[in-house]
Design a protein around this nucleic acid. Structure first.
Lengths: 220, 220
DNA sequence: CGGCATCCTCTTTGATACTG
DNA sequence: CAGTATCAAAGAGGATGCCG
């Protein structure tokens, strides 16, 4: 029957420890990540965005996160008729934490390729934190990324750079291949030639990349 | 004899997941916190700054953190003859992560007072992230904080605000009492009168506080 | 003492299977 | 689809022992 966990705490009067009492459990921050990049999710969407999580663990984490005020569970009304999980404001406030952690983790993304699984929505982190439109007055463009069966595209327009699901209608540039090669390209750790040599398929106008990545001439 | 842990990984090609593979284990980030606020530590200093940690767990975490490049272990040479643990550069790079987490945790520090334990070096977080010297050209001053048997003091001078161990020689202001009241005062969530009413002992020139806390007239 | 290693118990997790 | 149920394995916590 129902039970409730005794909320393990570090028992320290320190804001870091207090925060970790809430977000320090395994999988918790990755659930926040998924809700940040996907927006409100069904249980199955979450499970899909969190490969490796055990179903019972996801279920109990969501309950704990609801209890601690990170997550709001909505019984979707008439049309969808399914429950949706989304972040509360307090949960969204964790974005700077995810950004800091993700930034620290970036150097570990360069290794050739392990057998890690990948989901295309995870490009969101790099896109929102590392890319910006350097040519605001140029026409909009799209860069399609095909790393998994689910294509996504980077939409660049009026100074904003965002990741969108699905294929682009008329992409200026299309990249297909290993996610690590795209990641290297987007974070400027890999040159176009090197990425191509390592097997990335690049077709279209490569100036689109220069428009959004941090160039060597960044002097700001 | 020697063994080695199978390094549990999320197995996801995502910089947040990769980072959490390294820093996501219980106690790891708190060990980083202690090494950040205390600097190079002996094993016993660490254990003292981490009330609640099991000795064997601290020991094995330190080994893992050494293996993953966060911590450097130095066999102190002749005089001290003890081993010192300190952060590598990669470990120090975690400071923005600690800051983001600690900032998120701040709202949870206001609760009256639980039976959490406290160490005076933990004031460092608030001091370095939330206080600044608004009157750079005024003479230096010290604010002594007596929350535990180990007094500390905030040293303000030439635009810098730092936390120092021990008593001040000639403090401009001295606060004694519950850490939560001092914390509320420093983060501007509690007025001087309220803090006094709640039992904080305040003696000296309270203008010293106004010099370093964010005032209501912040319009920057 | 400082710096662990061992032993033991309890909780958390991971993998898989099953149900309304 | 949205979870529960079950069970084995791993990790956490606490006490104590060892060794320079």
């Amino acid at each position: 029957m129902g039970y409730s966990r005794a909320v393990r705490s570090y028992g320290q009067y320190c804001s870091v420890a207090k925060a970790l009492d809430i977000i320090g459990d395994r999988w918790t921050l990755l659930i926040v990540r998924e809700l940040l990049v996907q927006g409100p999710c069904r249980y199955t969407d979450l499970r899909n965005g969190l490969p490796g999580v055990a179903s019972n663990l996801l279920s109990s984490r969501l309950k704990e996160m609801e209890a601690s005020g990170l997550v709001v569970k909505q019984n979707a009304p008439a049309p969808v008729a399914t429950t949706l999980f989304s972040l509360s404001e307090r949960g969204r406030d964790l974005e700077p934490v995810l950004t800091a952690i993700g930034t620290w983790g970036l150097p570990m993304m360069t290794s050739p390729k392990s057998d890690d699984v990948f989901r295309s929505q995870w490009f969101t982190f790099v896109v929102t934190n590392y890319l910006h439109d350097r040519l605001e007055h140029e026409p909009a463009l799209d860069i399609e990324l095909r790393a998994t069966s689910d294509a996504v595209h980077i939409h660049v327009e009026h100074g904003s750079v965002v990741l969108c699901r699905g294929s682009a209608e008329d992409p200026t540039l299309t990249l297909s291949g290993e996610p690590s090669l795209m990641m290297g390209l987007l974070t400027n750790q890999l040159s176009l030639d090197d990425a191509r040599a390592l097997g990335l398929d690049i077709s279209g106008d490569t100036n689109a990349l220069k428009r959004i990545t941090a160039g060597d001439d960044e002097a700001d």
